[in-house]
């Protein structure tokens, strides 16, 4: 769907990029320690515990967050200096489509991603894209009345309508039932674009060419799915650290 031309797979680079924020008490909290990473594979999975920094990593690659140290480059473009161009290259799919769908109806939402086209063409193209993914019967139905799976499918369609070279997916199937999960995964797998997926789903991660494991704001494993996921499984054995600390007291 969406991809008429196959975009070239470029390189995503973190160059000593780190993020620290001021927390409520005025101290600093590190979300991601300075990290250097070059991603050129077509399918990359990022796994890690809750709050490990994996969402930070994805938000850095989209320019939603700018690094407080170091730099992030997408296809050679610095996310801080060339933010607008980076956002044109990168599409972002959230776990929860609720906040991602901005327009009252599917047709309008997809058309919003096609603002560069003249009005008439925009509607035609948006209709085409929606028919392609099977939402042709819901062009004018209020988004609020779509099912969760339909909403995520619509969010994906809207993101892809802008023809991004890179798709970042932040837990794209977490809220979906099994059927929708399989469907959305199949769509993602078939994309010609480079796709970086943050996921808790190890089966999905195993299908990637490269897996990056994040823990405590650092990359603790990086490489082939088998090796990286083995590290992740070891890491996740035992109690969550927040609870372990309580037991030790």
């Amino acid at each position: 769907m969406g991809g008429t031309a196959v975009p070239p797979t470029g390189v995503l680079e973190l160059d000593g990029a780190g993020v620290a924020v001021v927390d409520g008490e005025g101290g600093t909290r590190t979300l991601l320690h300075p990290t250097t990473l070059t991603l050129s594979e077509r399918r990359v999975a990022v796994v890690g515990a809750n709050g490990s920094g994996k969402s930070t990593l994805v938000r850095l690659l989209d320019g939603l967050l700018t690094p407080t140290t170091g730099a992030v480059r997408v296809h050679g473009l610095d996310t801080r200096r060339d933010g607008a161009r980076v956002r044109g290259l990168v599409g972002l799919l959230f776990a929860d489509p609720e906040a991602q769908l901005l327009m009252p109806t599917p047709l309008e939402d997809v058309a919003l991603s096609l603002r560069h086209l003249p009005r008439r063409e925009r509607t035609e193209r948006a209709t085409e894209l929606l028919v392609d993914v099977g939402l042709g019967g819901h062009l004018h139905q209020p988004v609020a009345t779509l099912s969760g799976g339909q909403k995520q499918l619509l969010a994906l369609t809207s993101v892809l309508a802008a023809e991004p070279a890179v798709l970042l997916a932040d837990e794209p199937t977490t809220l979906l039932d099994l059927r929708w999960k399989a469907h959305v995964e199949a769509l993602l797998d078939a994309l010609p674009q480079q796709v970086v997926t943050v996921t808790h789903d190890l089966e999905a991660a195993a299908r990637a060419e490269r897996v990056v494991v994040v823990d405590g704001g650092r990359i603790v494993a990086d490489g082939s799915p088998a090796a990286a996921l083995a590290t992740y499984r070891d890491l996740m054995a035992g109690l969550p650290p927040e609870l372990a600390a309580r037991d030790a007291r």
Binding site: V19, A20, V21, V22, T28, L64, L65, T66, T68, T69, R80, G83, A84
Partner: peptide
Amino acid sequence: MTAPATTRTPRRTPAE
């Protein structure tokens, strides 16, 4: 360029 994320900038960033 390495100012912390919370530093006030006179112009609002695109994200803001």
